[in-house]
Design a protein around this nucleic acid. Structure first.
Ligand SMILES: [Mn+2]
Ligand SMILES: [Mn+2]
Ligand SMILES: [Zn+2]
Ligand SMILES: [Zn+2]
Lengths: 136, 136
DNA sequence: TCCTACGATGGACTTCGTCCAAGTCAAGAA
DNA sequence: TTCTTGACTTGGACGAAGTCCATCGTAGGA
């Protein structure tokens, strides 16, 4: 059983076949799937899994901090199982492919107090845009 | 007439009453309205303006580089007329309100060559997330 | 003033996502 | 092992955001 499933059981989750399959689909590096892509791949293993369950499970994983939501420009959200090591994203403007990247420096610290307008700033999301070798 | 309308006429735009009203609604600082908010405010001045025209006009302004799209997580896109001075955004996770911010440092330069995977990196978008004073 | 290509309109349609009532089953109790 | 139960799943209705298109209207040049 994967580490993820072990952690989920530790949190009191029922380990249903649907949740197991969603967790399996999200396993790996550089995985940034939409909910529909997760549903498609999950249904290949468990044909009757419903869209609602995929959405429910992804939402629960996000709430637990086990999966990150990656915002996209006007397209469907993408779900990122690499929630343990902080990272940012490099997106190809041509084909939409996504790579995990690790910039140096401290983007949060780059925002001066005078520029915070009384907000409690909790996180920062950095998206690099460009063309991948194939699209350039 | 605003600078924006003057530039648009210079680009061969027909200055219809609908486009004029959309441009007026977008005038100002810290303006980050959704398409529906633009439609609501435009309709206060020109009651029969359609949603399709608001979407068309906003899309054209974005294509011309006169207005920026601000992507949000799971909410409607916001349209930002402050396209002339580069800036980033601070977004309230509670109410969705947006402030312009100007971080110090060089986010593009923070991405090492070894982390670029052969991409031609052209731009970087930084979004700070937190709670505004009202939502905290 | 007249013409016409460009723009506006509204409603159907698509995509992405949420909600719900009803049926199902994981896992602890006995 | 079987029973019990409430957490989970399901399909479909619903909703929000955005696109598309046939048709109508008009800005602006001739
Ligand atoms: Mn990632
Ligand atoms: Mn802005
Ligand atoms: Zn590419
Ligand atoms: Zn707020």
């Amino acid at each position: 059983m994967s580490d993820l499933l072990r952690r989920l059981r530790g949190r009191g989750w029922r380990l249903t076949s649907q949740r197991r399959v969603v967790a399996e689909v999200l396993d790996g590096d550089h995985v940034h799937l939409t909910a529909d892509e997760v549903h498609l791949r999950a249904a290949a293993r468990l044909p009757e899994i419903s869209r609602a369950t995929v959405y429910n499970t992804l939402g629960e994983l996000v709430a637990l901090g086990e999966v990150l939501e990656v915002s996209t420009v006007g397209r469907a959200k993408r779900y990122d199982p690499n929630a343990r090591r902080p990272h940012q994203h490099l997106v190809c403007s041509g084909c939409g492919s996504v790579r995990d990247v690790h910039p140096v420096g401290d983007a949060l610290g780059d925002l001066p107090e005078a520029e915070r307008f009384g907000f409690t700033v909790g996180s920062v999301e950095v998206t690099y845009r460009g063309l991948c070798p194939g699209c350039a």
